[in-house]
Nucleic acid binder design. Structure first.
Lengths: 236, 236
DNA sequence: GTATAAAGTTAGATTAATAAAACAAAATTA
DNA sequence: TAATTTTGTTTTATTAATCTAACTTTATAC
């Protein structure tokens, strides 16, 4: 138990030994998001992701290494420790739960929730997020189809295919959107493309890989390769 | 329009010229809360409220003065400018709306919401708070009986009496709790004392001003002077 | 109306997060 | 494999928010 200040300056007792700064949390989150199968992340990648210069990243990695949150050795790739991974996953859990809550319980558009969740994810209050989880009925996926880790940090990534890798004639179901920028999500809205939607691939332009698809009452919608690269689907 | 970083480091366009730091926001909020009728606040008071030493406060006041958020003159009391007051009221609006949302829509106890609202109040997203307001049906009061400013910053303070100033024999309705610490609210919970509750003052101990009151099925509940000082009531 | 106390300011130091410049190691390419 | 580019680190500097110590102004008390 440590004594710490709340934001309004009144003293309060906290059971959290680790009051991570918002800044540290963002480093952890990016590290997690950049770790592929190997779990390795380069300083350069992280620097670009966070838009923070490499020397700053290096020094922060040393700091996080002291806290046993990352494995750091000069000139070697970065890796989160188990402790670091746990904290990162918790932030991602809070982010995705929030997105789901904003869409499902507050009626905010899926294109607007990321920006809000980026802020809410740093709130320190287990009760708050447990209540969200409960009210949502313990959802497994967020509004963009990404898995929500459970309280123990477990999350199931189903194996999806990129729409761009499907063939003409196939019928598929939209499962998730990758790299969910406001513009992309607004584009999907404008074509009434939503998760769970079934669509059929009528043809593929060999020249530029543009797809012609049908769904609902839309008989020939054109989707660029860029769009198809960003959509994950389930084959039916 | 200014270009700024979001918390995850991705660039985004913001329409807010003024991205106040959380720290500045806390100074503004405390300044507002400490301004009585005169609107004047001493550096010393502010320093104590925020648990920040006076020299730090002085230098922050100079900074806020440059931003036209406070009127500052050496050795004179501090006053918020209209601009500063507006920003402070907006933070208070966000705080109280959040408390109401947490209680009404998320089922979190009124003793737990302050701590969460202290964090949520700093979130930058008009949409988020407008949705809260709408879902709550544009409430005028928060769960502790404090008025919620509307979008234009207007708030109505009804005139309430302190319970401690009432006389034996009077029947009153609990209207608001002042200085809402977790301990105090838990105490109220333990006695089933809640806002809106009608109670009758049976007698007052002249020695220590303790009150004996009745309400619901409780026929003789004792309330210390300290408690009665912290409860605002409406006379019936 | 001095003397003392309280409140407020100034000056100097510290810490965290950042960047620029210079340097070192590793990877790529010719 | 030597030259070049890319990546990563070290050193030095800056900014924001904080503090302590020393000093000044205003308020209070005798």
């Amino acid at each position: 138990m440590t004594l710490q200040k709340t934001f309004n300056g009144s003293a309060s007792i906290s059971t959290f030994a680790t009051m991570n700064s918002l800044i540290e949390e963002n480093y952890l989150k990016s590290l997690f998001n950049l770790s592929g199968k190997s779990g390795e992340v380069n300083v350069n990648e992280l620097s670009k992701q966070l838009e923070i210069k490499m020397p700053t990243v290096t020094s922060m990695m040393k700091k996080l290494a002291k806290k046993k949150l990352v494995h750091y050795e000069s000139y070697k790739p970065l890796r989160l420790t188990e402790k670091g991974k746990k904290q990162a996953v918790d932030i991602i859990r809070k982010h995705r739960l929030t997105e789901m809550f904003l869409v499902q319980k507050m009626g905010i558009g899926w294109e607007d929730v990321h920006h809000i969740a980026e802020q809410v994810e740093h709130i320190q209050s287990p009760v708050f997020f447990e209540k969200m989880d409960e009210l949502l009925g313990y959802p497994k996926l967020d509004p963009h189809g990404s898995p929500i880790p459970d309280k123990n940090g477990k999350m199931e990534w189903k194996h999806y295919n990129k729409l761009s890798e499907c063939k003409a004639g196939e019928t598929i179901k939209l499962a998730a959107a990758i790299n969910t920028s406001v513009e992309f999500l607004k584009f999907l809205n404008s074509r009434e493309l939503r998760l769970g939607l079934k669509l059929k691939i009528k043809s593929i332009e060999p020249f530029d890989n543009t797809m012609i698809v049908t769904y609902d009452k839309r008989l020939a919608e054109t989707l660029s390769h860029t769009v198809c690269e960003r959509l994950l689907v389930e084959k039916l």
